[in-house]
Amino acid sequence: MDTRIEDIADWLLQQVDTPLVIRKEERGDVDQVLMKLEKVSFLPGDPDRDDYVEDDRLVLLGEGRIATDEGALELPRHSYEIPLRPDFRSELAEGELRLTTDRASYRVVPQRVQ
């Protein structure tokens, strides 16, 4: 079942100050980010920008690291963007957020400190 962008934003706001694991799969490549979420923004696309339709996107702000083959690297600009193409699908289930576009799938999982 698809989740409205408002529900996604509300869920993400509930995760502020919580460590998150963000897993992105795109064309067989897997990226994983661990970040402590500090702020959430929604940026609408700008269809009038040079005849180029820029996607809406969620911007997650916070300190984080990207797992790479060479080790962990600092998250650039302390932000992680998830483009929301017009046909994106989403689901909030089992305590996590799943987003799918025609290019990639994302899984956002809070890491609860025991």
Rank of each mutant, 00 (worst) to 15 (best):
residue 28 G to K: 03
residue 91 E to H: 07
residue 13 L to Y: 15
residue 86 P to H: 08
residue 2 D to F: 01
residue 114 Q to N: 09
residue 105 S to Q: 13
residue 30 V to I: 15
residue 61 L to T: 02
residue 9 A to R: 14
residue 99 L to E: 04
residue 54 E to C: 08
residue 41 S to T: 10
residue 9 A to K: 15
residue 94 E to F: 14
residue 77 R to I: 09
residue 61 L to S: 03
residue 56 D to Q: 03
residue 76 P to C: 00
residue 18 T to D: 05
residue 92 L to Q: 10
residue 33 V to N: 01
residue 20 L to Y: 11
residue 22 I to L: 10
residue 16 V to D: 06
residue 68 T to C: 03
residue 75 L to A: 07
residue 5 I to K: 06
residue 88 F to E: 10
residue 10 D to K: 11
residue 9 A to I: 14
residue 104 A to L: 05
residue 34 L to P: 06
residue 23 R to E: 15
residue 52 Y to V: 15
residue 83 P to T: 04
residue 41 S to K: 15
residue 71 G to C: 13
residue 73 L to V: 15
residue 108 V to W: 01
residue 9 A to C: 13
residue 89 R to N: 06
residue 42 F to T: 05
residue 92 L to D: 05
residue 109 V to S: 10
residue 99 L to N: 05
residue 50 D to I: 14
residue 58 L to F: 05
residue 36 K to F: 14
residue 101 T to I: 03
residue 40 V to N: 00
residue 74 E to L: 13
residue 104 A to N: 02
residue 92 L to F: 09
residue 98 R to N: 09
residue 40 V to R: 05
residue 33 V to S: 00
residue 15 Q to R: 08
residue 63 E to H: 10
residue 93 A to C: 11
residue 41 S to I: 08
residue 86 P to W: 15
residue 96 E to G: 00
residue 3 T to F: 01
residue 9 A to G: 08
residue 10 D to H: 11
residue 110 P to R: 05
residue 69 D to C: 06
residue 85 R to Y: 15
residue 95 G to P: 06
residue 111 Q to V: 14
residue 73 L to K: 11
residue 82 I to M: 07
residue 47 P to E: 12
residue 111 Q to Y: 14
residue 3 T to S: 08
residue 97 L to I: 03
residue 18 T to A: 07
residue 79 S to Y: 04
residue 41 S to Q: 13
residue 88 F to S: 02
residue 78 H to K: 07
residue 5 I to R: 00
residue 25 E to K: 08
residue 44 P to G: 08
residue 75 L to G: 06
residue 25 E to S: 04
residue 97 L to K: 04
residue 74 E to R: 12
residue 59 V to M: 04
residue 114 Q to V: 15
residue 26 E to N: 09
residue 92 L to P: 10
residue 8 I to M: 06
residue 109 V to D: 02
residue 5 I to C: 01
residue 97 L to F: 00
residue 40 V to S: 02
residue 49 R to P: 00
residue 3 T to W: 00
residue 8 I to V: 12
residue 97 L to P: 00
residue 95 G to Y: 05
residue 48 D to P: 07
residue 56 D to Y: 06
residue 52 Y to M: 15
residue 15 Q to D: 11
residue 63 E to W: 12
residue 107 R to N: 13
residue 78 H to G: 03
residue 22 I to P: 04
residue 32 Q to G: 03
residue 13 L to S: 14
residue 60 L to M: 13
residue 54 E to F: 04
residue 31 D to H: 04
residue 95 G to N: 11
residue 39 K to D: 12
residue 62 G to T: 00
residue 53 V to L: 12
residue 91 E to M: 08
residue 62 G to V: 05
residue 34 L to K: 10
residue 96 E to T: 03
residue 75 L to I: 13
residue 33 V to F: 02
residue 72 A to F: 07
residue 97 L to E: 09
residue 51 D to G: 11
residue 34 L to N: 04
residue 80 Y to Q: 01
residue 34 L to M: 09
residue 15 Q to H: 09
residue 84 L to S: 05
residue 41 S to L: 14
residue 71 G to I: 15
residue 5 I to Q: 02
residue 90 S to Q: 11
residue 109 V to C: 02
residue 38 E to S: 10
residue 4 R to H: 02
residue 81 E to Y: 02
residue 58 L to R: 01
residue 83 P to Y: 12
residue 113 V to L: 14
residue 50 D to R: 15
residue 44 P to R: 13
residue 94 E to Y: 13
residue 58 L to Y: 07
residue 63 E to V: 14
residue 32 Q to W: 01
residue 26 E to L: 04
residue 9 A to M: 13
